[in-house]
Design a protein around this nucleic acid. Structure first.
Lengths: 236, 236
DNA sequence: ACCTGAACACCGTTCAAGT
DNA sequence: ACCTGAACACCGTTCAAGT
């Protein structure tokens, strides 16, 4: 096995020792009968298709074509089309979780942390619109994909934890702090969705979405606070 | 023409005078060669399909089948599948606009009005999840459907107007009040989306979504205000 | 003016057969 | 263990032909 997988790109894997260097298209990159990391190649293709043609532009056949395999090949790795999308969504939630964790570590103050999380959430969403659309297109809840549900819960839990910490530190009655997480979560998801959908732009709201999120979360936590609402906080 | 159209349901229209009362399925309701109001029957079928099987459960063929016509018949009324969805989305935005207008009239105080709008927005969304999913599934922005874009703008404008009125009445610096509409809009859209998607429920947030919206908007407008945040305002 | 029937390309999925 | 090729049902769309 002399093949080397390059994560995040189509793999040039070969069980045999042959080399073919004349062509570079996805279909030509495969030297042997076996692909090597078809699973990854397919989720990557799904992301690219969504980025190019929107959520409805993804088809299993086209993804297989781009990966250079037959239309039946994906079924060795995914039960069906939805399971492929679920796998892509899971990837997304894991990345989002990582981004949120990193943002949370950068702030000690409970309020600043929640603001940082809101900004990081929206920033990740708008820089990965293809992922984000798949994550909330394939309904996370109804999915029977175990990993997806867990990964999504982890990402959302980052917001919940920060909200809980803030609420219990600031408020006199700390009962049911989970209840207070609905608003900030909805706020950042709404900004992300409307921004990716182009609705904010179309309505004449051209603010930088992450900055808008930071401002809005800060304002929501306390009306008289933080930086002046006129000037958005500087991105980290 | 003795046929009478019943808005909001499959029509029992006939150009001829024949009657057929034995069956009641959609396919059997049509007595004559012509349907009568196929356009409406198709958008209704689309809504029902989305309600039953989710946004991906809608197919033009199945909608035609339920309306009792051939798969080719819809093309006399809509250019393609997306145009049918756009028409359904337009209906939705008109209804939402009406609901918001009604809610706005019920409150004079700028702040209470914005709160009422937020509650009405989410209430309409969660009581019409099929419509709402179509409205934000078929991306409103990129659509070449003139009526849809206008209807959507009207609905959003209800929120903008109320926000502008509030901001200029309350704030010292009233420049660019449109900018302040992004947060409340994102908030109510986020609550509506996450609620319809089942994510809020799944995360253990079982609040009544309209009440959550009212609370969150009120809190966003001013932290020390209105009714106690512990008890949700009573629905109108 | 509106609808049907047949046709075509394309997609999701299955399965026997290849490597 | 992984992939291909052929097959089938189904969907979107078109068009000539019916009422």
């Amino acid at each position: 096995m002399d093949g080397i997988n390059i994560l995040g790109d189509i793999n040039v894997v070969n069980m045999s020792g042959r080399r073919k260097t004349s062509k570079r298209s996805a279909a030509e990159r495969r030297d042997s009968y076996h692909h090597g990391d078809l699973k990854r190649a397919l989720t990557d293709a799904a992301l690219r298709l969504v980025a190019e043609k929107g959520p409805k532009g993804f088809t299993l056949t086209e993804a297989a074509r781009r990966a250079g395999v037959s239309a039946a090949a994906p079924y060795r790795h995914f039960a069906d089309k939805d399971q492929l999308l679920a796998a892509a969504a899971e990837q997304g939630f894991l990345q989002l979780h990582a981004a949120l964790t990193k943002a949370a570590d950068s702030a000690c103050d409970p309020k600043r942390r929640l603001v940082a999380l809101g900004r990081a959430y929206v920033r990740w969403a708008v820089t990965h619109p293809d992922h984000y659309q798949i994550m909330f297109g394939a309904q996370t809840v109804g999915s029977d994909h175990r990993g997806l549900v867990i990964a999504a819960a982890q990402a959302f839990n980052d917001l919940f934890e920060a909200t809980t910490t803030y609420v219990t530190s600031e408020t006199r009655r700390g009962r049911d702090p989970r209840r207070h997480a609905g608003a900030p979560w909805s706020l950042v998801h709404g900004i992300a969705s409307l921004s990716i959908g182009g609705d904010l732009d179309h309505a004449g709201i051209h603010d930088d979405p992450p900055a808008l999120a930071a401002r809005a979360v800060a304002q929501h936590l306390e009306v008289s606070s933080t930086s002046a609402p006129e000037s958005a906080p500087a991105p980290s």
